[in-house]
């Protein structure tokens, strides 16, 4: 099977956000593989081990994205592709990202593409379904189980806690939800091997794209932090009195009762 994973690097979950002049500071921030994309990498490796074939991890990013790609290779992916837009493009949105991926996949004959359900930074959750639509293939979002038999895929899809049992066919794009699997940690031999695995770097020229077609359809005009919350009031005294005080505060101060 010809398997692809879409991977985005994101700020580490615990990273503090600093905004200067309407932009998020990323100097010195720790980056990780978007957690939902880790489920995608893990699932890709499992499906390959079961059905044979190859796992290619693809990211659109900058030269620093190599780190996350190497981690995915160390987990067990076979190849990686970095589409580096740093030199060519200033702005982008989900449309831009999809357009680039569409061009990349044009001649790939992918059987299965795995993406994350959402990227934890910008969190639009658009890229998976958008790409499937452009490629004209089936897609199922927020999956928690995947069984492939020939061209048929049996899937559990999480729908706000309900489980839909879905049957569809390859080629297919899925987006991965927490609960699908437990991503493995890269092993030491895995890390050693990853250094020698192929990592191809492309620019938009290589995909026969030019900047004009990639103009984003939306624009971020400002980024700001939520108003600093006044430190909450931790109540004191006898438990009974604390609860009474809480009820009175909720009624008279917060006015929610």
């Amino acid at each position: 099977m010809n398997i692809y994973v879409l991977l985005k690097k994101t700020f580490d979950t615990e990273e503090k956000i600093v905004v200067t002049n309407g932009r998020i500071e990323d100097d010195g921030a720790e980056f990780i593989i978007n957690p939902y994309d880790e489920y995608a990498v893990e699932e890709a490796i499992k499906q390959r081990d079961e059905h044979g074939g190859e796992v290619t991890v693809v990211t659109i990013g900058d030269e620093d994205s190599e780190k996350q790609l190497r981690t995915a290779l160390a987990m067990g992916a076979d190849k990686a592709v970095l589409i580096n837009t740093e030199e060519d493009l200033e702005d982008g949105d989900a449309f831009t990202t999809t357009k680039i991926l569409e061009a990349f996949f044009e001649d790939k004959e992918a059987d299965l593409i795995l993406a994350g359900n959402v990227a934890i930074d910008e969190a639009s959750g658009q890229v998976g379904p958008r790409l499937a639509e452009r490629l004209g293939i089936n897609y199922v979002t927020t999956i928690t189980s995947l069984e492939i038999d020939g061209d048929t895929a049996k899937i559990d899809k999480d729908v706000e806690g309900d489980v839909e049992k879905i049957e569809t066919s390859l080629p297919l794009l899925v987006t991965c939800q927490q609960g699908l699997n437990e991503p493995r940690y890269p092993s030491l031999p895995g890390i050693m091997k990853a250094k020698k695995k192929p990592l191809e770097e492309l620019e938009i020229d290589d995909l026969d794209l030019d900047e004009d077609e990639l103009e984003p359809k939306t624009k971020t005009v400002d980024i700001f932090l939520p108003p600093e919350k006044e430190a909450g009031r931790v109540l004191e005294g006898e438990l009974e009195d604390q609860v009474k005080e809480l009820v009175s505060l909720l009624r008279n101060e917060a006015k929610v009762l």
Partner: peptide, 15 residues
């Protein structure tokens, strides 16, 4: 909201 609600962005449609 972006970054798990740690920040907010204002967005407009460009086209």
């Amino acid at each position: 909201p972006i970054y798990s609600g740690k920040a907010f962005e204002k967005k407009v449609v460009a086209e």
